[in-house]
Design a protein around this nucleic acid. Structure first.
Lengths: 141, 141
DNA sequence: ATACCCCCTCAAGCCACTTGAGGTTCAAGC
DNA sequence: GCTTGAACCTCAAGTGGCTTGAGGGGGTAT
């Protein structure tokens, strides 16, 4: 199959596939006489796996590690589990940050609504709140 | 005061301040004879405001908008509130994504622990789960 | 032969900084 | 007055994970 079909089947885009090939995450595709890349069902499976890992938030380097684990009969399952566990910890940390952030922004909005809605912007409570900096420290998005 | 002091007082770094100046988020600093940037307390206030906005997750362009609102006597407070509300919606969306993600990854880990811990990596339940792609669609981090 | 879509490569752009190289300024101590 | 060393300067490139754009070739249906 050609690259556009692979992209559809794996739920991603053509440039992304070429990008993955370029950084060595997917092995170089076989080419037709005209230079066009040709893929098979195994490529669909691998690309889906990569996209699933990415959707789970694994960075590319960890996807690389996971990919190689899927082929390594000498590796232990605990390596995969440990990667997943570390991901889980990271996700939970981010979740806590984001919850605190949600609380803070909601407070920003509701204070403005109850004390100054419709007034002159320069006097808005949001600016006072932002200058007092009650925002949680967080890894900037 | 010099740039290093400003960085400390605003809880950020020297290169970040220069970067903000470069992109026009902070106005160009006055220079000493030797070329070194000099700041005053108003600069501390503005930089703190910028960092607070960033900590709240506002992208640079929105920080720019918020900064100009702080000075614009003809603007309405609702403009600031609307920006904050849109931010709140975005944060809540991300929060929902992250919660779903947490559930999925936790399932990944616990299935592995109960069915295959210590086995050969190639047979790990994590890979089966990832290939079945139960990950939520999400804006990739 | 023509139209048209899909494909190709290479390069640059995005966001918000961070890092590095290589050089200058300034305050303190001798 | 001289040396040291921290703090400063500029300019360029790197980070992650793609996306976008320019400019051209391949494949197939009419």
């Amino acid at each position: 199959m050609r690259i556009g079909i692979l992209a559809d089947r794996a739920g991603t885009t053509v440039p992304t596939i070429r990008y993955y090939e370029q950084i060595g995450l997917l092995r170089p595709a076989i080419r037709q006489s005209g230079g066009q890349r040709i893929y098979d069902n195994e490529d669909v499976r691998r690309l889906r796996f990569v996209r699933a890992c990415r959707a789970f938030g694994f960075p590319i380097d960890e996807v690389r590690a996971l990919l190689s684990l899927t082929d390594d009969r000498s590796a232990s399952c605990t390596e995969a589990r440990d990667l997943a566990e570390r991901r889980l910890v990271a996700v939970r940390r981010k979740l806590a940050e984001l919850k605190a952030l949600e609380t803070s922004i909601a407070a920003l909005v509701s204070t403005c609504n109850s004390t100054c809605a419709g007034g002159v912007a320069t006097d808005c409570s949001i600016f006072e709140d932002l200058e007092r900096r009650e925002a949680p420290n967080r890894s900037l998005v």
